[in-house]
């Protein structure tokens, strides 16, 4: 569904991505895991064509991403930015309906149907009751869910999430990631997200890309990638990996 081949990217002279390959299909949740500055966010931006790779290509549905018009791309690919504060206190439904932008002409207004789709999207992420609340006055977790609903309103096949758990408390982290994982299955979406926490990556991903210093160190199933050796290599700390009821947990070694 979404494929990256040999993607290289540099800010001025600093090479940030040094040839990266990604393959994610529908129904699959892929996580980009790596320390700060490893190139996760840059890679996500290349995947949604906000940044243009130096060399290499990104394909969505078999088409090269740079050759797809913005409006068309937005129908195929939804992007969920990190939680933020917009300058104006729109209601939640007004924010979600903005996801219909690629389907609405420059001089037109969203129709009744667009509002229905937006409401449906809210329902899918489970926050329909927040519909008329003011977006700037809800909690961080709810905000993240609203942004996911907005991306859903674009009716995409690919969903990209930039650190969806940043600044969230423990419960909300789990809540948001559960929603994301369900979406991939129920809505049959190809999901790529970036995360910091190996435990969360292990719990909610089908596939993990371990990135350090602009290269993919390892890829594959969480159980295969999230290992003591790999994490030592990438984060430079010693950890113990514990298995409990089929899920792996990473615990740092304190001594």
């Amino acid at each position: 569904m979404i494929v990256a081949r040999e993607v290289k990217f540099s800010y001025e002279k600093l090479l940030v991505l040094k040839g990266i390959d990604v393959d994610v299909v529908r129904g699959e949740v892929a996580t980009l895991l790596g320390p700060n500055g490893s190139g996760k966010t840059t890679l996500l931006m290349c995947l949604c064509a906000i940044l243009k790779p130096l060399t290499g290509c990104v394909y969505v549905n078999g088409r090269e991403i740079t050759k797809i018009k913005r409006g068309e791309l937005a129908k195929m690919l939804g992007h969920v930015p990190q939680g933020h504060r917009p300058p104006f206190p729109y209601t939640v439904i007004d924010v979600v309906v903005m996801g219909r932008a690629p389907y609405i002409g420059a001089f037109s207004m969203p129709s009744k149907r667009d509002f229905e789709i937006a409401e449906k999207a809210l329902e899918i992420v489970g926050i329909r009751h927040l519909k008329d609340r003011v977006y700037t006055q809800i909690s961080g977790g709810e905000m993240q869910l609203v942004l996911i609903a907005r991306a859903l309103a674009q009716q995409p096949q690919v969903l990209l999430l930039d650190e969806p758990t940043a600044h969230l408390d423990f419960k909300n982290k789990i809540l948001v990631l559960k929603v994301v994982k369900n979406l991939a299955k129920k809505e049959n979406l190809a999901v790529i997200m970036s995360l910091h926490d190996p435990n969360l990556a292990a719990m909610f991903s089908d596939k993990v890309y371990l990135i350090a210093d602009g290269v993919i160190v390892d890829r594959g199933e969480p159980s295969k990638v999230i290992t003591r050796e790999n994490l030592k290599r990438v984060y430079g700390i010693d950890v113990n990996v514990i298995e409990h009821e089929g899920t792996r947990f990473v615990v740092p070694v304190l001594e």
């Binding site: 949604c48 906000i50 913005r70 409006g71 068309e72 791309l73 937005a74 129908k75 939804g78 992007h79 930015p81 903005m98 996801g99 932008a101 690629p102 907005r150 674009q154």
Partner: peptide
């Protein structure tokens, strides 16, 4: 950035 991702030029 967001407007761009929602398909706007």
């Amino acid at each position: 950035a967001e407007a761009k991702m929602m398909g706007l030029n």
